[in-house]
Design a protein around this nucleic acid. Structure first.
Lengths: 220, 220
DNA sequence: TAGATTGTTAATCGATTAACAATC
DNA sequence: TAGATTGTTAATCGATTAACAATC
């Protein structure tokens, strides 16, 4: 069992946030950084930052802090920005289009190498220089090209079958934009986006904040 | 301090998931449900479900379980599906388009009442029957129409100013699709989507899963 | 009444925060 | 060397799970 230490999902979900802040600091030409400085920028405790980073290694130096460029590279390596993940987008609707046009992904190690749809009007066109192919070509394409991740932006009623199809082809990573939770084999990694869940949490918090404000006003 | 009991974000983030599963169960015409049955479907413990629900009230009945329709309505009420939140989308790019076309939102209590952009080619057109207006019209629009939530899908370099502008107009809810974390006043509720964070977590998990598989293979 | 399942209290587990010795 | 800040251990806090009495 390799490293022994199990890293919690809470820590993992914070990594991309560190990555973003470090990227911004680099752009601001800031060379060094203490955990306290970073904690103030991010609104978390310095203790948490040091704990998180020390899950992966001692990237700092006592009395000095962290070298921004070095830490940025280390966090990138942990996240796999050097892996060159090859992705295909299934569903060339608005969401598929939006994702195909996101320039951010490439810089983070994700390359879009194909888009698939069933609409004959879309097939053959290019979105951000990526060819849109018919779903009938999917199997051949995956056999001829290494694909790490399938990004699923198909209508919800097709999601289960699409997920089964891509996993049958050996694709092990799925980024799921449908509201359905995908329960797949233990060897497949799924990340669900669930936009309406996010919006509903916003709605809840807004409602509660209003209630709070009402009470405060009432107390005067 | 009204209710006293503070509800944790972990619980709140699970609510939309309960809502989704209950909605599916309703469609399957299932009338009653025990916490154990739901726990098996959702892959969480029955204990957690009962704890979560009891933060808001006793919706079940000993010896019987929960009435699906009733529980669905209660969870909906907690989340505010009856609030009719009025939303505007700022940025009519691919992401703005995708969100304007999501039919799911209305059913969950969120209505899109306007879209704003600066591109003269887009201004005046309609997306899913919602008029696209110029950003110059934003202030007047917000003064004449009640707006609960601004959905920000503008390019990252404009995000801070756009957020300042909408909060200055009194909008208290922000759904932020830019990679920048918005740190706004205490009276504003922000929900960040950060798509690339989600993708990076997928990349990390995929990389680790592969490492795991390698080791297992090596052990044979 | 007997069986089932909730609501709720208590026990456990894990994550966050605090503290401080190590060390640059 | 003195000052600063890490890496890491210990203490605290909160969330999840287990257990069971209440009750339908």
């Amino acid at each position: 069992m390799s490293e022994g230490k199990k890293i919690s999902v809470a820590v993992i979900r914070r990594l991309p946030r560190y990555f973003r802040y470090l990227s911004d600091l680099l752009k601001l030409d800031i060379k060094r950084l203490s955990s306290r400085e970073l904690s103030q920028r991010m609104g978390i405790t310095a203790s948490q930052i040091r704990q998180d980073l020390n899950c992966f290694g001692g990237f700092g130096q006592q009395g000095y802090g962290y070298n921004v460029e070095n830490l940025f590279e280390e966090v990138g390596k942990i996240l796999g920005t050097d892996q060159g993940f090859k992705c295909i987008i299934i569903g060339a609707g608005n969401m598929g289009n939006a994702l195909a046009n996101y320039e951010n992904f490439k810089r983070r190690g994700f390359e879009m190498i194909g888009i698939f749809d069933v609409d004959p009007k879309k097939v053959g066109t290019y979105i951000n220089n990526i060819k849109v192919r018919h779903m009938d070509e999917l199997d051949d394409f995956v056999k001829e090209n290494h694909v790490d991740i399938a990004i699923l932006t198909v209508p919800n009623k097709y999601i289960i079958n699409t997920a089964k199809r891509v996993t049958a082809l050996g694709i092990k990573g799925i980024w799921n934009f449908s509201p359905t939770d995908l329960m797949l084999g233990d060897d497949v990694v799924v990340e669900n986006v669930h936009l309406s869940d996010s919006l509903m949490v916003l709605g809840y918090n807004l409602k509660e904040k209003r209630k709070q404000m009402e009470e405060k006003k009432g107390a005067d």
